[in-house]
Write a protein that binds this DNA or RNA. Structure first.
Length: 486
RNA sequence: GCCUCUUUAGCUCAGCUGGUUAGAGCGCCGGACUGUUAAUCCGUAGGUCCAAGGUUCGAGUCCUUGAAGGGGCGCCA
């Protein structure tokens, strides 16, 4: 705790969370934080970010100069020394009777862009430098941290190695979407080759390079040496995606496991997902409760059919207590084709074997048919990536998607094609030159083995756990087409 | 990339088939009150109606173009 205290000469600062959990009545303490509310000139709700709950500071305003009292305003930063007593009010156990108050940072309410009232997420998105001070966003970002921590804990406790795959990649065959070019050349004066195109041989790396779209191919290198590895890092897609579920810069978790088939992969995906949810349920109940109430409050003004079927915490508990539904792509197609909305022509897109399932189909399966997370496995090979293992029917590959209610695809994974000749055939069919991935092919020539893995969209998981409807509200500084402020 | 909606006070919004001085709630500010929990009560101030053109005697309201934001779809995690 000392490490947080810059004022060692006076008194150790106690964090609000610690006061609320283990405060001793009668003790003299020093707290610092931001004013969330100042009621009746007497009651300050103080929060220092250490937890969701505030400490009530009682100010006998009669004993303080009016000038000081006026400076205690919304989100001003103060330091308070006082005595902890049992609260006379009903809303809290303890309260701090102030003996000394110091203003650390003023916040003139008339000029401040935040107000002590409900503000829309869209408005707050434009004030990203302040939005973490609100109840909603501080809860979201505490939970974001919790999920990140739980990821490392899960894999460490299960014998995985955290592997750092490159952010800048020299391979443009990862096959996961449009990439951001990385170049040190002067764009206005780039050297040109004989063909008139930019000559990247003269660029920093001696070749064209991009920001990674996935660490999977490199993670396979790790898995075929260390057995079980995972990556957790930023990933970039230059797709012009304008939705509430896409970011141009997002974080992805990619475990890769040797001696694992598609069934083991699905087991891992389910167990891992449940672990993350349970970790937040166990450790951040106050933040979750607040987010749940926030949603219930918003839904009061919505028609019934647009409301969530269950409140947030109940949804999370339901997910960890029940098995995910597992169906093959072929079964999914059959179920969809015999469904009511299909027969009544309610779907915008047709369902036909060989075509990818559309969002509306996935949503129906998850939210209407099974009412829980669904894992769809064994997709037609022609709609999936080159590295996915061909099944014995030679029509499908051992690929799976985990679909969550309200979000859709949170995880996409597969058993990898470990058989060299099958992989080469697939790459040829998809026009991927072997020299681009020579090292990837060599993994199949020397000591290859069956292995599998998946990618989980970190922000999508945080979205599911927090119930936030827009992915831009679960990452501190969202990067989306046309927007890179902050 | 496509479709759609929105843009009026600091914030969230209302403003009828075009018609004088532009409305509310909350917030801010001022006052009252003081054991509050989104405190309460009273009052004041605050607006180039997103921008540029156009139609009209007259435009917040209608038309065109543009900008910003939301929602949906596609692509995916």
């Amino acid at each position: 705790m000392d490490i947080h205290n810059i004022d060692v000469k006076e008194m150790k600062r106690t964090e609000v969370n610690q006061v609320l959990q283990e405060g001793k009545v009668g003790s003299e303490i020093l707290v610092k934080g931001w004013v969330k509310a100042f009621r009746a000139n007497r009651f300050i709700s103080l929060n220092d970010g250490s937890g969701f709950n505030n400490l009530q500071v009682v100010v006998d305003f009669e004993n303080y100069p009016e000038e000081l009292i006026k400076r205690i305003s919304f989100h001003s930063c103060i330091s308070v020394k006082g005595e902890l007593v049992e609260s006379q009010g009903a809303g809290q156990k303890f309260e701090l009777v102030a003996k000394e108050i110091e203003i650390l940072g003023d916040s003139n309410a008339g000029d401040y862009v935040l107000q002590p009232k409900k503000m829309t997420p869209e408005y707050l998105r434009e004030k990203a430098h302040f939005r973490m001070r609100t109840n909603t966003f501080s809860a979201v970002f505490r939970i974001r941290h919790a999920v990140a921590f739980a990821i490392h804990k899960y894999y460490n406790d299960n014998g995985y190695y955290y592997m750092h795959t490159p952010i800048i990649t020299g391979s443009d065959a990862e096959g996961a979407g449009e990439m951001f070019r990385v170049s040190a050349l002067d764009p206005d004066n780039a050297p040109k080759g004989e063909d008139g195109k930019v000559d990247y041989k003269q660029d920093f790396f001696g070749k064209a390079t991009n920001l990674t779209v996935s660490g999977q191919l490199q993670a396979e290198i790790g898995a075929l040496a260390l057995g079980k590895v995972y990556t957790f890092g930023p990933t970039f897609r230059a797709e012009n995606s304008n939705t509430s579920r896409h970011l141009a810069e997002f974080w992805m978790i990619e475990p890769e496991v040797a001696f694992c088939d598609i069934h083991g992969d699905m087991d891992l995906a389910e167990d891992f997902s449940k672990y993350l949810i349970k970790y937040v349920l166990d450790n951040y109940p106050d933040d979750l409760k607040f987010l749940e109430n926030r949603i219930l409050d918003m839904e009061k003004q919505m028609p019934k059919e647009q409301r969530r079927p269950m409140p947030l915490i109940e949804t999370l508990n339901f997910v960890i207590e029940n098995d995910f539904e597992r169906i093959t792509y072929t079964e999914a197609v059959n179920i969809l084709r015999s469904s009511k909305p299909y027969k009544k022509g309610r779907f915008e897109f047709d369902v036909e074997w060989g075509k990818d399932l559309q969002a509306e189909h996935e949503r129906w399966l998850v939210e209407k048919k099974f009412k829980k997370p669904v894992i769809v496995v064994d997709y037609p090979k022609d709609i999936k990536s080159f590295y996915m293992r061909l099944n014995d029917d030679e029509k499908t590959v051992a690929a799976m998607d985990v679909l969550f209610p309200g979000i859709g695809e949170v995880i996409g994974g597969s058993q990898r094609e470990e058989r060299l000749e099958f992989l080469q055939k697939r790459m040829a069919e998809m026009d991927i030159p072997e020299h681009e991935l020579w090292w990837y092919l060599e993994l199949r020539k020397f000591g290859g083995c069956p292995h599998a893995g998946f990618g989980m969209g970190f922000e999508r998981m945080v979205q599911f756990i927090t119930g936030m409807s827009n992915i831009r509200d679960v990452i501190p500084f969202p990067r989306v087409p046309g927007s890179a402020e902050f």
